[in-house]
Computed example of a mutant assay.
Amino acid sequence: MTSGTYTEPHEPGPEIPLAGGDVTEGVVRVGDTVRRPVGPNAPLVHALLRHLEEVGFAGAPRFLGIDAAGREVLTFVPGEVAGRPRPAWIADEERLASVGRLVRDYDDAVAGFVVPEGVRPGYGFAEPPGMPPKPPYPAELVGHMDCTPDNIVFRGGEAAALIDFDMAKPVARVEEALNVMLYWAPLGDPADADPPLREVNVPRRCRIVADAYGMSGADRSRLVEVAVLRTRRAWFSMKQIAEERGGGWARMWEEGVGDRIKRREAWLEREAKAIDAALTAP
């Protein structure tokens, strides 16, 4: 599979708009394909999706090429996602466990993937002044790193596929598991959680993800540390991207994402012992 122009197998059907998440606009369905803008991380994403196809990982769309309008062409993944307003089933613990298993299956499938020479993961931003340090753990694989409810496709009540790989980058496994917990536990001030998740037992849900993913003891013990460090960095990176890229990023910043990140940091510091105890208990 190359990144060349996609050849339509027949007269294309109508373009049906699809929800594109917080920052991706112009996503449409055409027949059994999805067309979306080519993002700055596309060289890595395309190589990653080709790898997943080669190893037979069923939980991701296939990259088919670039259409005549200059858009990515991907296979359409049938199923349901937790759009907005969030459905009540987002709090279901069996579904939560299935998300942990799906992400672990993805991480295992991508463990042998090597970033192609000359490809630089990410959005091409230099770190802004004052950016706190990264977690001190080496990258182990190219993580999905955007496991939001919008990006997990369910079938029959089970997480079946990941979509939207724009945020993929090399990370430690603990960071990938943390990303799942961030959105699905969820990690943050309950006032900022989606309504179905405002009264859930967050430490318990973290443990469910950890067990389903099969987190190592070492990763469980460092999860809170990584969560705090990543949260501190998130404020700086979100502010910079909003200023430099605008669009959906700027809208999120204007709507208060920076304040929510600060509240998450304070909440993590208050709840650190409870989360750590739930993750590391026998």
Rank of each mutant, 00 (worst) to 15 (best):
G112R: 03
G112N: 06
G112Y: 03
G112K: 03
F113V: 12
F113T: 02
V114R: 14
V114Q: 13
V114N: 04
V114K: 07
V114S: 08
V115A: 07
V115P: 13
P116T: 04
E117K: 08
E117G: 15
E117W: 00
E117Y: 02
G118C: 12
G118S: 04
V119T: 10
V119F: 00
R120F: 00
R120E: 15
R120K: 12
P121K: 03
P121I: 11
P121C: 13
G122F: 01
Y123P: 00
Y123R: 12
Y123T: 09
G124Y: 06
F125A: 11
F125C: 03
F125H: 15
F125R: 14
F125L: 15
F125P: 03
A126W: 03
A126P: 07
A126R: 12
A126V: 09
A126M: 06
E127K: 13
E127M: 08
P128K: 00
P128L: 01
P129C: 10
P129N: 07
P129S: 02
G130L: 11
G130V: 13
G130D: 11
G130Y: 05
G130T: 13
M131K: 10
M131E: 10
P132D: 11
P132L: 14
P133G: 10
P133Y: 08
P133K: 10
K134E: 15
P135V: 08
P136Y: 09
P136G: 11
P136N: 13
P138D: 09
P138F: 13
P138I: 08
P138W: 08
A139C: 06
A139H: 10
A139Y: 13
E140I: 02
E140A: 03
E140M: 06
E140C: 02
E140W: 11
L141Y: 02
L141H: 15
L141R: 13
L141D: 06
V142C: 14
V142E: 14
V142G: 09
V142I: 15
V142Y: 12
V142S: 10
G143Q: 06
G143H: 04
G143R: 05
G143Y: 03
G143I: 08
G143C: 05
G143M: 06
G143P: 05
H144E: 10
M145W: 04
M145L: 14
D146Y: 12
D146M: 08
C147Y: 00
C147H: 01
C147K: 02
C147S: 14
T148S: 15
T148Q: 14
T148Y: 14
T148A: 14
T148F: 14
P149V: 06
P149T: 00
P149E: 00
D150C: 04
D150H: 15
D150Y: 15
N151I: 08
N151G: 03
N151R: 14
N151C: 05
N151T: 01
N151W: 06
N151K: 02
I152D: 00
I152K: 10
I152T: 03
V153R: 01
V153F: 02
V153W: 03
V153A: 05
V153S: 07
F154L: 02
F154G: 01
R155F: 00
